[in-house]
C-alpha cells in the first residue's frame, strides 16, 4: 500500500514536470544576466573561462558560502564519527598487493601534477579549484589505500584548510579596501588567454583548490581511519 501511494506520488510529479516541459522555452537564448556575462564577462574579468568568471568574480561571495558549507560538512563528519579510535590490538588491514603499491607510487606525482594543472588553468580551460582540489585529495588518499597503517596528519590538513580560507577572505578584504567591494577583481587583467591574467582570480582558485582538497582528503581519511577501529 505504501509503495503504491509512493509510486502514485512519483508518477504524478513526473506528469506535472512533463506538462511543464511543454511551455518551457527550451533552446531559447540565454537570460538577460547570461547575455550580459557572455557579452562583457571576458573584458570585465580577464578570464577566458566565463564559468570561472561567474563563479569567482560575479558570485564570489556565493563561493565563499559554498566553501563554508563544505567545511561544515567535513567538520560534521568528523564530529559525528568521533576521533579515530584505533585500538592497539585492532587488526589492521593488510597492505595492498604489488600492483596497488607500485601504481600508487607511480600515480601520486602524476595526480599531483594533473591537479595543479587543473587548478592553475582554471581561468583558461575547464576546471578550477573544485575539480583540481578533488584530484589533489585523491592523490593524497591513494597511498592510504595501499598502506592502511599510514594516516594523514589531521593537524597539517587543518592548517592548510585554515590558511587557504584565510587567503580567500583576505583577498576579498583587500579588494574591499582597494575598490570598495568585497572580492572585486584586482590587479591587471593581462592578455586574455595567458597564464598570468585575470588578476586575482587564479589566486582565489588556488585557495579554493587547497581548501577543497584538504577538506575532502581529511574527510576520506576520517572515514577510513575510524573504519579500521571497528564500529
Amino acid at each position: 500500500m505504501r509503495n503504491f501511494t509512493s509510486l502514485l506520488f512519483a508518477g504524478g510529479l513526473g506528469f506535472f514536470l512533463l506538462v511543464l516541459a511543454a511551455d518551457l522555452p527550451l533552446g531559447a537564448p540565454p537570460m538577460l544576466a547570461g547575455q550580459g556575462v557572455l557579452a562583457e564577462g571576458a573584458a570585465a574579468t580577464g578570464a577566458a573561462n566565463l564559468v570561472t568568471a561567474v563563479v569567482l568574480a560575479y558570485r564570489g561571495i556565493d563561493t565563499l558560502g559554498e566553501l563554508s558549507i563544505l567545511f561544515a560538512a567535513a567538520a560534521g563528519v568528523g564530529l559525528v564519527l568521533g576521533r579515530a579510535r584505533r585500538r592497539p590490538d585492532a587488526e589492521a588491514d593488510p597492505e595492498g598487493g604489488f600492483i596497488l603499491l607500485a601504481a600508487a607510487d607511480l600515480l601520486f606525482p602524476l595526480l599531483v601534477i594533473v591537479g595543479l594543472y587543473i587548478v592553475l588553468h582554471g581561468h583558461l580551460t575547464p576546471g578550477g579549484g573544485f575539480q583540481g582540489g578533488v584530484v589533489l585529495a585523491a592523490a593524497f588518499f591513494l597511498p592510504l589505500l595501499g598502506r592502511p597503517r599510514n594516516a594523514l596528519d589531521h593537524a597539517v590538513i587543518g592548517w592548510i584548510e585554515g590558511l587557504a580560507g584565510a587567503v580567500f577572505v583576505g583577498i576579498g578584504l583587500w579588494a574591499l579596501a582597494a575598490r570598495g567591494e568585497f572580492l572585486a577583481p584586482l590587479l591587471g587583467k593581462g592578455t586574455l588567454g595567458a597564464l598570468f591574467s585575470a588578476g586575482t582570480l587564479p589566486l582565489l582558485y588556488i585557495a579554493v583548490g587547497l581548501k577543497v582538497g584538504a577538506e575532502i582528503a581529511g574527510l576520506m581519511s576520517t572515514l577510513q581511519e575510524t573504519e579500521a577501529a571497528g564500529s
Binding site: L107, L110, V114, I118, P126, V134, V135, A138, F141
Partner: peptide, 14 residues
C-alpha cells in the same frame, strides 16, 4: 573537452 577525459581517466583508477 580533452581535459574532462583526462580527469576521468586518472580518477576512475582511484
Amino acid at each position: 573537452y580533452l581535459d574532462v577525459a583526462m580527469i576521468y581517466g586518472v580518477l576512475s583508477f582511484v
